[in-house]
């Protein structure tokens, strides 16, 4: 008890001597976005500012990389820069409200806006109308890629999809439930839940909410995490509001991104990981069946985020490159 009292006294003295830092100020607990940090590479499209960068010759075939979440960022997919060394113009961007891209209020996000943003990114970087466009989407990014192809079946030359939860809302919900299937008494789940009494934020306090969501990411590498990652993913800044907004929209709109996929006759490269217990061959077959022409690829020695870790990427990259080169 004496230690506690002493800690309180020390805390009081410290807070009296220093100007208190506030958790809702970006730059303290989470990095600044492109709106406040001019040194970050960015583009302005679709009335918003995006954190984005490219690798490779702009005249080469374009490969647009789409991160998961929603609300993650492209840092964990930077291994895909390797495609630039193989003759591709690789485009990365943090999606609207994610990573280091600009933040918006919750009611501004729509699924269509995310699709329109992808369209605008492609248009921004496209060197010529004849330039071949490929998409590489992971998790939610694979759903976004599919939503885009569903609306623009002839715009894309080929697509690499990594463990999308589903292309229909119920499939997505079922997958998310399985992927978050922790025991109630587990360290990982209680670590995630316990933080709620330390930090709360209003809907417009995006730095607070982003920080808190980032903390939750620590559960990704827990031993009992069904998704099978070997360690934690690198990230810049989580996008909590866009994450909540898109899940709420999914629940409300029950989207189905498969209505026109039969028109996309090009072979789809569909990758799933060996260690993700929430996915597996059965889920991969079920989800990918919305496309008429699929190459299923099991990535051995890796979990859900197989692109981020050396063993997974070593197994993924040659097969994905071979697929792209075949188109």
């Amino acid at each position: 008890m004496r230690r506690i009292i002493l800690s309180v006294v020390v805390a009081t003295i410290l807070s009296a001597c220093t100007k208190g830092k506030t958790i809702d100020e970006a730059g303290n607990l989470v990095p600044l976005t492109v709106e406040k940090d001019a040194s970050l590479p960015s583009i302005y499209i679709n009335l918003s500012k995006f954190h984005a960068e490219t690798f490779g010759n702009p005249a080469n075939k374009m490969l647009v990389v789409l991160h998961g979440g929603p609300g993650s960022d492209y840092r964990y997919l930077l291994n895909c820069k390797e495609f630039a060394n193989q003759g591709y113009y690789v485009v990365f961007y943090d999606q609207r409200g994610s990573g280091l891209s600009a933040r918006h209020s919750k009611n501004e996000y729509t699924i269509q806006l995310m699709i329109d943003d992808l369209h605008a990114v492609i248009a921004h970087y496209r060197a010529s109308p004849s330039q071949k466009i490929f998409l590489l989407g992971h998790s939610w990014g694979a759903i976004l890629a599919t939503a885009y192809i569903n609306q623009n079946p002839s715009a894309i030359r080929g697509v690499i999809l990594g463990e999308p939860g589903g292309f229909k809302w119920q499939d997505i919900k079922d997958y998310v439930r399985r992927a978050r299937d922790f025991r109630f008494s587990s360290e990982a789940l209680n670590d995630a839940l316990y933080a709620d009494q330390f930090i709360t934020g209003r809907e417009n306090e995006q730095a607070v909410l982003d920080y808190k969501l980032g903390l939750l990411g620590a559960a990704d590498a827990a031993k009992d995490n069904p998704t099978g990652n070997e360690s934690l993913l690198p990230f810049w800044r989580a996008g909590a509001v866009v994450n909540k907004a898109l899940f709420d929209l999914g629940e409300k709109e029950q989207p189905d991104f498969t209505s026109s996929l039969q028109l996309f006759s090009t072979k789809v490269f569909f990758a799933y990981s060996e260690r993700n217990r929430a996915y597996g061959l059965e889920q991969a077959q079920k989800v990918s069946s919305a496309y008429p022409n699929v190459q299923l690829q099991k990535i051995n020695g890796a979990g859900h985020d197989f692109i981020s870790f050396s063993a997974g990427f070593a197994n993924f990259f040659p097969a994905a490159l071979s697929y792209l080169n075949s188109l």
């Binding site: 807070s15 208190g20 506030t22």
Partner: peptide
Amino acid sequence: VRDGWYEPSTGGN
């Protein structure tokens, strides 16, 4: 990231 004491209140339920 800036370690240290943060105030005012960081949360409440």
